[in-house]
Design a protein around this nucleic acid. Structure first.
Length: 249
DNA sequence: AACTCGCGCAACCGCATCAGA
DNA sequence: GTCTGATGCGGTTGCGCGAGT
């Protein structure tokens, strides 16, 4: 299993995404679906690393995404799941529809960890993964009454149990205690079915037209873009000067 | 008004794993 | 079985912004 090379450093944009980049990425994925990220970034006309595109889509552009305003229920679920799984953010996120691993990780690192730290007693050495108390203490945590009675060994045992099994099936059994989890499971199943019922759309492609627009100077290095992305790009003010150019040669 | 500081969060980085050649 | 590219994940960084002085 070799390692993939990092994203090439030269010629790619870094840092915050612009509205135009978001639009290009979203419209491309809407038309052609996810996957093949490195190829996708090129075809969508984005000077971005494939990994960067994937992250942007998964964390911010996905239509079913929820941002901010993490509810008490969600917060409690995060805490309980973290007790069971440790820093397995993607698994935790999988149990919170519309939430991303990055958001949960950030929420944990800012709000919950700080709160736990503030309430923890003196003399408890911080563990590497900064565990919170076990599930039965979540009410105290929520009410700001958390103390040092957490049992790290017990948590480690839980984590080890989960590690010994595999992924979310274990969680299903661990969370068969009712509450909102059944609803969550149903929602997750619905999303899975939805995903399977919407395979990637084939890309409509016109060879002659492709040859015409790829030689146009307005493309300026965007010759791998698909039609939709190009059209989107040309709609922007930045490329307004290109609109009157005849693409037929 | 100008400056500093701390916080939140978006994005990057490195590594692990998977899948296909 | 090995190699390589693609993808996924968790840790970390650094920028932007608001609060405080």
């Amino acid at each position: 299993m070799g390692r993939s090379p990092s994203c090439p450093k030269e010629g790619l944009n870094k840092g915050a995404w612009t509205a135009l980049e978001d639009k290009l990425l979203a419209s491309y994925i809407k038309a052609h679906g996810e996957g093949k990220w490195s190829d996708l970034s090129r075809r969508a006309g984005l000077k971005r690393c494939g990994k960067s595109c994937r992250l942007r889509w998964l964390n911010y552009l996905r239509p079913d995404i929820k941002r901010g305003n993490i509810s008490r229920d969600e917060e409690e679920l995060i805490i309980r799941l973290h007790n069971l799984l440790g820093n397995r953010w993607s698994l935790i996120a999988g149990r919170l529809p519309g939430r991303t691993d990055n958001e949960i990780k950030n929420y944990w690192n800012t709000v919950l960890r700080k709160r736990a730290k503030g309430q923890a007693s003196i003399g408890t050495p911080p563990s590497k993964s900064t565990q919170l108390p076990a599930a039965q203490h979540t009410d105290k945590l929520r009410d700001g009454q958390l103390n040092s009675t957490n049992n790290n060994q017990e948590m480690s045992g839980n984590i080890a149990t989960v590690e010994a099994h595999n992924g979310t099936q274990v969680l299903d059994s661990l969370y068969s205690d009712g509450g909102g989890t059944d609803l969550l499971n149903e929602q997750l199943k619905e999303r899975d079915v939805e995903f399977e019922e919407n395979p990637m759309q084939p890309l409509a492609f016109d060879e002659a037209m492709f040859k015409n627009w790829t030689v146009n100077p307005c493309l300026n290095g965007n010759d791998a873009m698909d039609f939709d992305s190009l059209a989107l790009l040309l709609e922007t003010d930045e490329f307004s000067f290109c609109r009157n150019i005849n693409f037929q040669t």
